[in-house]
């Protein structure tokens, strides 16, 4: 089975601090990581490959330094890595990004495309579903587990608000994966040793089957109207009490909110 996993390099938002005066993000020195949902997607892909054989390609659009997450993906066990990098792609919103990724996917053969549910820097959860629409693929979102029970379809467990839902989807298809239920493997030592000896394929606009007006800033209808820092949420109240008193307080609060 040929699987393409779309991954994104993001700032590790757990390490980001806010400037106490201006309220803006302090990005300096913040490490870049593979987006956690994408890493979960890669784990799903590598698990499918282990069980059923196949070939896993990782694809990212980004600046040259995004190569780092491709090396990490190779060290985890991906077979092929492609970096989509071109000035024409710069300034892309989710629509232009999904157009670019779809353009690259048109040049690749696959049965399954996997993306993360959303990236921790933008949190839109739009790119995966948009790619599926551009390529006219059936899509399953919020995926937690996948199995291949028949040759032509995947059985997919997805998280929904009330619980879990199991659906079947015919191949080819696109899945967006949630990291919560998937524990990504560690890079192996041999994978790490060999990761920098492997080739990263560098693709630019010419390698991608897409209309130039649909990529980069030109292909991005999103306009930022205003950026602002969200007000600090109520941090809650702290009660230093005995367990018995704590039970009393919790039950009272839940009753006040008509939860119980």
């Amino acid at each position: 089975m040929n699987i393409v996993v779309c991954i994104k390099q993001v700032p590790d938002t757990t390490e980001i601090k806010l400037d106490p005066v201006t309220g803006t993000l302090l990005r300096d020195g913040v490490p870049s990581i593979m987006n956690p949902d994408d890493k979960g997607g890669l784990e799903i892909a590598l698990g499918l490959k282990e069980r059923h054989g196949g070939h896993v390609t990782v694809l990212t659009m980004g600046p040259p330094q995004a190569e780092e997450i491709l090396r990490e993906a190779l060290a985890m066990g991906a077979d092929r890595a492609i970096l989509l990098s071109d000035r024409k792609f710069a300034g892309a919103d989710t629509l232009a990004t999904s157009n670019t990724l779809a353009g690259a996917l048109r040049a690749l053969s696959f049965e399954v495309v996997i993306t993360g549910r959303q990236a921790i820097d933008g949190d839109t959860a739009q790119v995966g579903p948009q790619v599926a629409e551009h390529l006219d693929l059936p899509q399953v979102t919020y995926v937690e587990a996948v199995s291949l029970d028949t040759p032509a379809a995947l059985t997919v467990c997805r998280a929904v608000e009330e619980g879990h839902q199991t659906v079947e989807v015919t191949l080819p298809c696109l899945l967006t994966v949630l990291s919560g239920a998937v524990k990504p493997r560690y890079m192996s030592v041999r994978g790490i040793v060999e990761a920098y000896a492997k080739e990263i394929e560098r693709w630019n606009f010419d390698n991608v089957t897409v209309d130039e007006r649909r990529v980069g800033l030109a292909g991005s209808p999103t306009r930022v109207y205003k950026s602002f820092t969200r007000g600090v949420k109520n941090t809650g109240t702290l009660h230093e009490v005995t367990p018995e008193e704590a039970v009393e307080i919790i039950v009272t609060k839940l009753q006040e909110k008509f939860i119980i």
């Binding site: 090396r71 990490e72 060290a75 560690y186 890079m187 030592v189 790490i192 990761a195 920098y196």
Partner: peptide
């Protein structure tokens, strides 16, 4: 090296 950094992270 890049390889050693990757290894250290793992």
């Amino acid at each position: 090296t890049k390889t050693q950094e990757l290894f250290l992270r793992m």
